[in-house]
């Protein structure tokens, strides 16, 4: 068990988490600038499964990831499996104006398998000589996924990996992630606004709006039910009509 709390962990319990679980979160709370951003969030993620985190803007999705990465103080407990190796794919990069080649970026990991990782996300090795700042949104996200999987992580955390990516380029990225999950047994935690992606590529859903709106099997819900949980029934019906058209 790996307890990654930042000194504000309420429980100091060191009981083992079940070996088939990759992550157990209980009673997680986050306060930012005197406002409660997350309240009493509890869920588990089984090894080799995928969990989609959904919710309205400001609902606490990215805050949850930041707590999972131990970037911010929180209350409650976050317990990762002992064998956890986290690969993180951010929504975007803060600085891409640095004159840095894709090859130089990947070399930071000191692994020799980066060409194979590029190939597994559908990129040709010619991209190695391109500057990180010159890549399209889709190419950059794939490079970030390749960077994350170079170390053979057991968990991939993807924070809206296709934001800023052309609509046509979204699907192949999720296909690659799904492939990695199936072939390498990687556990996937994914933030997405795209309900189609959530319904197709996740095994479980965690709907957040400060507290947990829904947590369970994706297959137990229809697209419309999920929208209704997140945004209310009126919005869901409008969306359903839209899909029928």
């Amino acid at each position: 068990m790996t307890d990654v709390g930042r000194g504000q962990t309420e429980s100091s319990s060191h009981s083992q988490i079940e070996s088939n679980n990759m992550l157990v979160v209980s009673g997680l709370g986050v306060t930012s600038q005197n406002k409660r951003v997350l309240e009493d969030v509890s869920f588990k993620v089984k090894k080799g499964t995928s969990l989609a985190v959904v919710g309205p803007n400001g609902g606490g999705k990215t805050t949850l990831f930041r707590a999972l990465l131990n970037l911010i103080p929180y209350t409650g407990t976050i317990k990762w499996n002992d064998e956890v190796r986290i690969g993180y794919v951010p929504q975007s990069l803060v600085s891409t104006d640095l004159p840095i080649l894709v090859e130089e970026f990947l070399r930071f990991k000191r692994r020799t398998n980066y060409e194979a990782c590029l190939s597994s996300v559908g990129l040709d090795k010619a991209i190695l000589r391109q500057s990180l700042g010159s890549l399209s949104g889709g190419e950059l996200q794939r490079v970030l996924i390749a960077w994350a999987i170079v170390d053979n992580p057991s968990v991939l955390l993807l924070d809206e990996p296709t934001s800023g990516v052309d609509i046509g380029a979204e699907e192949p990225i999720y296909e690659k992630v799904n492939h990695l999950k199936r072939e390498a047994g990687i556990t996937v935690l994914l933030i997405s606004h795209n309900m189609h992606v959530v319904m197709h590529y996740s095994d479980y859903v965690l709907a957040l709006n400060k507290d947990v709106l829904f947590y369970g099997d994706t297959k137990s819900l229809t697209h419309s039910q999920l929208l209704s949980i997140i945004f209310g029934s009126e919005f869901a019906l409008t969306e359903e009509e839209h899909y029928k058209e």
């Binding site: 990831f65 990465l69 970037l71 986290i86 990069l93 803060v94 891409t96 640095l98 840095i100 970026f105």
Partner: peptide, 17 residues
């Protein structure tokens, strides 16, 4: 050097590593 550059590219990416 490498740690500084990764932190500059993305703080979250750096912390996750």
């Amino acid at each position: 050097y490498e740690k500084l550059i990764i932190g500059m590219i993305s703080k979250e990416l750096a912390v996750a590593n």
